[in-house]
Design a protein around this nucleic acid. Structure first.
Length: 440
RNA sequence: CGGGCAGUAGCGCAGUCUGGUAGCGCAUCAGUCUGGGGGACUGGAGGUCGUGGGUUCGAAUCCCGCUUGCCCGACCA
């Protein structure tokens, strides 16, 4: 994309309402624009990140054979009356009445709806297990939205739901999902640590929340440094084999990790001192098993092998996709701006032309730009070098390809790594090879 | 939901106490110079001062209602 003709407005001064760094940077880079309290429009730069994250989430869900669906944001109140949560949920649920005076609501989550859909089609134990997910907007009418997209009222979330014949099978699904989540976060480029969690009002007895390390995080965390050493992507786990899954799960849960509410000094003291890490974190996902709570309340069952009625065991699995955008920035930025992990960066590189009046510079930039128009942002604006450098640092593209009159006569350009600040002088023809050789 | 603060140009703010033709910086537009880390100068455009009512010869300013947003707390993907 050419910056001169794009909708990528950056702002020099900090907006007064933004208290935390990710909110500030998202507003300053023009990723989002607040439309009302806790409700944001996603502008081109922000949307590219949101979609990059979604894509990784989808790939890793599909990899464990979860199937994507898309449910509506508006739901009938009747569904929620069946589960008993219409009254239980409280004012966080946005209730709407249509022209026929029918009660609707903007979905804060989708257990009821997915259970209903499941029940309409799945009738036999032979059709289990089922694992479905969607990425869709949710609305929770928070008392006090804040921190930009970190706690909005409208938010984008991956929510997955599983249906298994028994507790034992549901545990296998839970293990699969754990693996999928660890791989998802690793690919996104953040360190997310699963921590044993309360199951809360939703009920159940097996739950983990995934917490990203960030100094500005809301909860204090304690964890074994072994967690951040693991390479979940290359760990050989056969997702079709229970034993392989459970040994992975056992290995993983061996390491200590807890939020301050669940922290246990006795166990903590058994972790070798050198491996004890304390910090702060942001919750970006949660998985839990809650058994037959919804299938029973909504009377959704399948026929078992002895013609018996069986209520499937359910689990639900969330990833706060829009919150992740903010959380990534919280965990990866510096004084100058955002530092995007490669996998989610809106653009792989920005081509900075600091010789907009110099034909050789223009030619070189055009040549570079055509090498990868989708992933290169071409700063062809007639601005001073300092403005372009500042914007490039602010927007946080992993690479800056700097083309200027000083070096272009020698057919040399400069490539700067945003994260490390390292610079390399290379020829134009080497750029693609150089960038691919430097991938994380 | 309790406590506090605020709404004036796209952004950041002054002006309100003490009523009298609405200002500053940045951004933006035109032009000249400049050109490797937010440059300089000149000129321009941009406002029903959140909203409704009241007091007054006259209201951004005083009074009343409404509304929107922000901060602290309790709560949360």
């Amino acid at each position: 994309m050419r910056l001169s003709s794009s909708f990528l407005p950056t702002v020099k001064e900090d907006p007064a309402e933004a208290q935390i760094v990710s909110h500030r940077l998202m507003l300053r880079t023009g990723m989002i624009r607040q439309m009302s309290s806790g409700i944001y429009a996603w502008l081109p730069l922000g949307l590219r990140v949101l979609e990059n994250i979604s894509q990784i989430v989808k790939e890793e869900q599909n990899a464990i054979n979860a199937q994507e669906v898309l449910m509506p944001t508006l739901q009938s109140a009747d569904l929620w009356k069946r589960s008993g949560r219409y009254d239980a949920y409280g004012p966080e649920m946005l209730r709407i009445v249509d022209r026929h005076k029918r009660d609707l609501l903007y979905g804060p989550t989708n257990e009821e709806m997915i259970t209903d859909i499941f029940g309409q089609f799945i009738k036999s134990y032979k059709e289990l297990p089922q694992l479905l997910y969607q990425i869709q907007w949710k609305f929770r009418d928070e008392i006090r939205p804040r921190f930009g997209v970190m706690r909005g009222r409208e938010f984008y979330m991956k929510d997955g739901y599983s249906f298994d014949l028994s507790y034992e099978d549901a545990v296998v699904t839970y293990h699969k999902m754990m693996l999928s989540y660890l791989r998802t976060f690793q690919r996104i480029g953040v360190k997310a640590i699963p921590m044993l969690a309360d199951t809360g009002p939703i009920g159940g007895d097996l739950s983990h929340e995934f917490i990203i390390l960030a100094p500005t995080g809301e909860s204090g965390i304690y964890f074994d440094s072994e967690f951040t050493e693991q390479n979940w992507l290359e760990m050989p786990v056969d997702i079709d084999d229970k034993k392989s899954l459970s040994s992975f799960f056992y290995r993983m849960t061996r390491f200590y990790a807890a939020t301050d509410e669940k922290h246990d000094e006795n166990i903590w003291n058994k972790v070798p001192e050198a491996r004890r890490c304390e910090g702060r974190g942001i919750e970006v996902g949660q998985i839990f098993y809650f058994g037959t709570k919804y299938t029973e309340m909504m009377d959704v069952s399948v026929i078992g092998p002895e013609s018996n009625k069986i209520y499937p065991h359910m689990g639900s699995y969330g990833i706060g996709v829009s919150r992740l955008v903010g959380a990534i920035i919280e965990s990866s930025h510096d004084e100058e701006g955002i530092i995007w992990p490669d996998a989610v960066a809106p653009f792989k590189a920005v081509i900075i032309n600091i010789g907009t009046k110099n034909q050789a510079c223009i030619d070189a930039c055009e040549k570079l730009y055509k090498m990868n128009q989708n992933q290169f942002l071409y700063d062809d604006r007639d601005e001073r070098a300092g403005v372009k450098f500042a914007d490039a640092d602010l927007m946080g593209h992993p690479w800056q390809i700097i083309v200027g009159p000083r070096d272009i006569s020698k057919n040399i350009i400069e490539v700067k790594h945003r994260k490390t600040g390292e610079r390399a002088e290379i020829s134009i023809d080497q750029v693609m090879n150089y960038l691919s050789s430097q991938q994380e």
